[in-house]
Amino acid sequence: MNQEAVDHKNIFFPPGGILLWIIIFLELMTFGVALVIMVYESKAEPVQFHDSRLLLNVTYGMINTIFLLTSGFFMALSVKEMNFYGKQRLKKYLPATILFGSLFLLLKSVEYYEKIEAGLGMGHSTFFNYYWMLTLFHVIHVIVGLIILISVYVGIKKESTTIEDIEASAAFWHMCDLIWLLLFPMLYLLF
């Protein structure tokens, strides 16, 4: 049994590491400020925001939320297994984490394709400018997260891959969930 060596109750050692948590807060602040400004701007064009919001596919948004949450669920299980049985146990659930993350990107690509085909690209309206900027910025994070998870999976056997590295990777991946949990209601449901 490989128990955690780090005391997470220590203010300097939150799960995932302090540096990652600083990044998480910076990211949350960035998306948070952008969303607050978007809502502020919507007051000038409420009808345009409402009509544009209705052009988004809520079912796609909901399924993508389920994909990301399920991916996060398998990531959390992976970390739990690793903390009990060692990092080799990551191989049990990490592929499912990567699979559901990839499904998110696949459905997002379908959604983007449909929007572009319908002429709802960047520049169509203020709402769609925010939609593209915020969701594309989030998609970049998901792609980076998947690359990190794949590199963790490939490097499990390496001595240099520590449990702290894996916990930091998991925290980054969950951050993608957190951001999406703000984007989905704000873009797809609110206006």
Partner: peptide
């Protein structure tokens, strides 16, 4: 809708990200 989003945000951060184990500050 915003309250439900806040609940989900809290569940992910405290359970999946194990913030429940972290120092009160976080």
């Amino acid at each position: 809708i915003l309250i439900l989003a806040a609940l989900k945000f809290t569940a992910v951060s405290f359970q999946f990200m194990e913030l429940k184990k972290a120092h009160l500050f976080w």
